[in-house]
Design a protein around this nucleic acid. Structure first.
Lengths: 359, 359
DNA sequence: CTGTTAGCGCATTCAT
DNA sequence: ATGAATGCGCTAACAG
């Protein structure tokens, strides 16, 4: 196995100096056409490929950007990341990916690792115990774009407006006569979770109602956990008549609990998914969802980072807020007419108009 | 913004030479406790962090491994990659990820890019137009582990035994009296697709039957595509009584087509999912699946690569084959008694015993 | 045990 | 337009 050809070999083969070869390869500075031709040919013959590590060392730029989320297999992240990757790949960047498992310590270690690897930029998803200061400190010498994450006053990031989303979805359910609504979303310490809870509670308050804190379950995102939580909720005296569920796993757990307890959707209980997925679309009945444009989140993330990478020093921070949309399907019915199997679509449509007016 | 501290700064602050600082930091060679203490302290005070790029340049090792699949948002891959990431992260490696979109050219370009970035190893998922030669050429100077990919005689990789899986699943359906079975799996040019089709056809042949080639649809993996294909199949004179569907998207399309055409599962048509997902578990009726252990695939991949990284030169190639499992649920019924709603479980159980004997 | 030196492969400056 | 020289930050080989 012969050692890889270096630019030195190319220069020698082309009969020029090392510097000229470099300039010819990068078409930088003044080089003659002859030199370019000779160097290009020699490079091809030798199968020369530049050593990106050496280039990075020299140029202080790696062409790599780091992406840290709690779990990139989570469908809610997977599509965002795919979209980021597409944009960054088109711009010539490659993605260094790692999962934080929502562990602050691990995140910190990974940020250090990535920074040590001299990534050109960082995209950070929400993580438990996140602190704006940490982000700002990092951002001081490494461009960081935050995803749905606390970023205090300054800082660049993309945010989904979970607050107004939850507000709208909760209003929608309240309009349908539901008063006992369960909100299952993990991470009340995370920005998305907190904002959802705030919107949820405000929707109650604006009607002069007080949300039942026991119906807000926000611990972990796991199917079996959601299953037992939902089961517990259902067996309580004031069983919820509607469930708002974040993500595939929680939705799964709730649907199983409902099935297990012999209740049918939406006749016995309404279900609303936060974050639309395959499951919510295909489930029968199809699940009404509060969702947002995952691809757009990824594009926005990439765009912001690219811009920051471009004017490499500190441009003014920028943030993009994306709104949520309600996708009305079949899993939500009026609380007043639980047995009105005939026209769930009609009642949903009617309620949607109300919700639109209210929102 | 002050420039980052280098090892030189640390050495100076600690009052030792550059070499001693390096040895102290890496605890390599002979260093006095005093030196270690002084250097460690200085490093901490200066906030020193080694420059991984410079280290890589010197050591010819980056601690990065590249991972190329067609689409890492695909649930079938997402869990495997998560598992790989966990293993590699534990071993101190980081993952460089990119999607090939199943495009041979793009894959080639990405392999070049990764190689240029001097990744320590590569994990390659199946890709259209894949050639064993390509892999072997790469593997000549860069450890490569293949995932479900053609690798001719030599080469390291992890394979799922899709052939016997399809054979078993098809036998199972044949035993239940289905003769018109549709097989929807993308990529007949990819190893997994080819092997599945081979197993499918052999199950027919061993009964002296000839599979209907029109029932094997293997073009693309997209929900709308699967939907229209399934619809077309259902309106044909010899409509299939059972569907084998690879992955979430195709399964989704087929289920929608079934619903759209007013057929119920499993009474009017049986459905078997290849690759178990949230959707197949939660769908009602729950979908009987042919699946495999995604986490184990990831672990095996990491283990093989780590071993190859260890004895860094060419150890003998190694491959791991993982078997598939049938998960019997509610979406498959006997073709003979389509209206026997009472005991689908029972008939399935009976059939499963037959399948076991047959396999 | 420690200091000094020599590159890793490359882009870039400064001469010419 | 080009060649020679410099050094990015680090580890490893060598000499003390």
């Amino acid at each position: 196995m012969k050692p890889r050809a270096t630019i030195r070999d190319v220069a020698k083969a082309a009969g020029v100096s090392l510097g000229t070869a470099s300039r010819a390869l990068n078409r930088a500075g003044r080089v003659s056409e002859d030199a370019i031709a000779a160097v290009t040919k020699a490079a091809r013959q030798l199968g020369y490929e530049p050593d990106a590590v050496a280039q990075s060392m020299r140029t202080r730029s790696t062409g790599v950007i780091g992406l840290l989320v709690s779990d990139f297999a989570n469908p809610l992240y997977a599509r965002i990341i795919t979209s980021v990757e597409a944009s960054m790949q088109a711009a010539g960047y490659t993605l260094l990916l790692a999962n934080t498992h929502n562990d602050r310590k691990r995140e910190k270690a990974l940020v250090e690792t990535f920074r040590g690897r001299r990534v050109d930029g960082l995209i950070l998803g929400p993580c438990e115990g996140e602190s704006p200061e940490l982000l700002e400190r990092i951002d001081a010498d490494l461009p960081v774009v935050a995803l749905d994450r606390d970023f205090s006053a300054s800082g660049t990031g993309v945010h989904v407006d979970h607050y107004h989303g939850a507000l709208q979805a909760t209003r929608y359910l309240l309009n349908l006569g539901h008063t006992e609504i369960a909100l299952l979303t993990p991470g009340s310490v995370l920005r998305p979770g907190r904002d959802r809870i705030a919107g949820f509670e405000d929707a109650y308050r604006e009607r002069g109602l007080t949300p039942n804190p026991k119906l807000i379950r926000a611990e972990r995102s796991a199917m079996d956990y959601a299953f037992s939580e939902a089961l517990g909720l259902l067996s309580a005296p004031q069983a919820p008549t509607a469930f708002m569920c974040l993500g595939t796993r929680i939705l799964s757990g709730v649907l199983q609990a409902l099935r297990h307890s012999g209740r049918s959707v939406p006749d016995d209980a309404s279900v609303l998914s936060i974050g639309d997925t395959d499951l919510s679309q295909l489930f029968s009945p199809a699940i009404t969802s509060l969702t947002w444009d995952f691809e757009a989140v990824g594009t926005a993330l990439a765009q912001l980072l690219l811009k920051r990478l471009d004017r490499d020093l500190k441009a003014e921070p920028e943030r993009i807020v994306l709104t949520t949309q309600m996708v009305l399907r079949e899993s939500v019915a009026s609380a007043q007419a639980p047995k009105n199997k005939a026209a769930p679509g009609a009642s949903a449509r009617r309620a949607s108009q109300k919700a639109d007016r209210a929102g």
